[in-house]
């Protein structure tokens, strides 16, 4: 099942193997490609979200700037970037300033670990999947850091909620990953996708798929789990005291994280780039990610926000048992039936 290392082009493959300078150039070129993909998809998801939610509410959404308002987000971005930065009297300004850009760099880092197709990946690590999820677990920590260092009580409550949610959602997620690794025999993402050649894992382990999807929603602050920036309760939670340029980054980060989440879901459960051969693998990958993101957006348009105690209840008493059952079923099927 192990993906053949020789097939993977990666950084070397872009420019052909050669001296170290070629490698460094390859890294830079690939990082630029990833950054562009992330920006384009993050931006487009932002536009799609505004449009879809507007249609769900009898509105039109942005219409004036650009065709169908496509450039509205760009205009908003420019407006936010041109605003002045507020220095907090009681907060730790340094922490606030570094943590948001760090979160953005984390998402780029994760994207470098994810393959877009069989040949397009920065580096194919044997424990790639583990590293991805270890990195994802840093997001709530940075939310905590930002919320705590703004010195605002709303940020404070938001930071506490962030840690509580981290505790309740990491565990089921890790259990599902273990199950996947059990089924494929590796933590290598290439290998995991290759193992889905016959049938997707979403069909093999539907329970695991549901658990992972819910946990991802919670992890990336999508409704109904947007308790950290619950606007009707905590104003904006950890973002209450963030000044405009950083807020623009956070908005962008929201959409890039949505892209990341849908990428991970489609890689692990929807067969990644596998699909009929009339389209290249990367196209299938992006189509699947977009469909997952659309579903996430529709959830945002319809759901009410959950309460923190119910979220913990769901995490500990529903998702963890479900993921364990999923593990058990997979193990039994692997051991005795296959």
């Amino acid at each position: 099942m192990q993906a053949d290392m020789a097939d993977i082009v990666g950084i070397q493959g872009l420019l052909g193997s050669g001296s170290i300078w070629y490698n460094i150039l390859g890294i830079i070129v690939y990082a630029v490609i990833v950054m562009v993909l992330l920006s384009v998809f993050g931006y487009t998801f932002g536009w799609i979200e505004r449009k879809i939610i507007a249609r769900a509410q009898y509105r039109h959404g942005p219409t004036y700037v650009g065709k169908y308002g496509f450039l509205q987000n760009m205009a908003d971005l420019i407006k936010l970037l041109s605003k002045r930065e507020i220095r907090l009297a009681q907060g730790d300004n340094f922490m606030v300033r570094i943590s948001v850009p760090l979160m953005l760099s984390l998402s780029v880092f994760i994207l470098l670990l994810l393959p877009f197709s069989q040949s397009l990946q920065a580096t194919n690590l044997g424990l790639g999947l583990l590293l991805v999820f270890v990195t994802i677990a840093f997001f709530p920590m940075f939310v905590f850091l930002t919320g705590f260092s703004t010195g605002n009580k709303f940020g404070d409550i938001s930071a506490q909620r962030s840690v509580l949610m981290l505790l309740s959602y990491e565990l089921p997620m890790i259990i599902v990953i273990v199950t996947i690794a059990l089924a494929t025999g590796s933590y290598n993402i290439q290998g995991i996708v290759a193992a889905q050649a016959n049938r997707w894992f979403a069909l093999v382990m539907p329970l695991g798929f549901i658990v992972m999807f819910v946990a991802m929603l919670a992890e990336f602050e999508r409704p109904p789990f947007d308790l950290r920036e619950a606007d009707s309760e905590l104003i904006a939670g950890w973002l209450t005291d963030i000044s405009a340029p950083y807020y623009a980054l956070v908005l962008f980060l929201d959409y890039t994280r949505m892209f990341l989440g849908s990428m991970i879901i489609s890689l692990l459960f929807l067969g990644g780039w596998l699909g009929p051969s009339f389209l290249p693998g990367i196209a299938w990958m992006l189509i699947k990610a977009t469909l997952v993101a659309l579903f996430v957006i529709v959830i945002r348009a319809t759901m009410f926000r959950m309460r923190i105690d119910r979220v913990l209840h769901l995490g500990w008493l529903v998702l963890i048992p479900l993921s364990l059952i999923n593990l058990l079923i997979t193990y039994i099927v692997l051991l005795w039936i296959l």
Binding site: Q57, A301, T302
Partner: peptide, 17 residues
């Protein structure tokens, strides 16, 4: 009311209409 429960203005816009 639905907004206070964290709805993204959907019911609000419907009932407003």
């Amino acid at each position: 009311m639905c907004n206070d429960l964290g709805q993204m203005f959907t019911v609000f816009m419907w009932s407003f209409k």
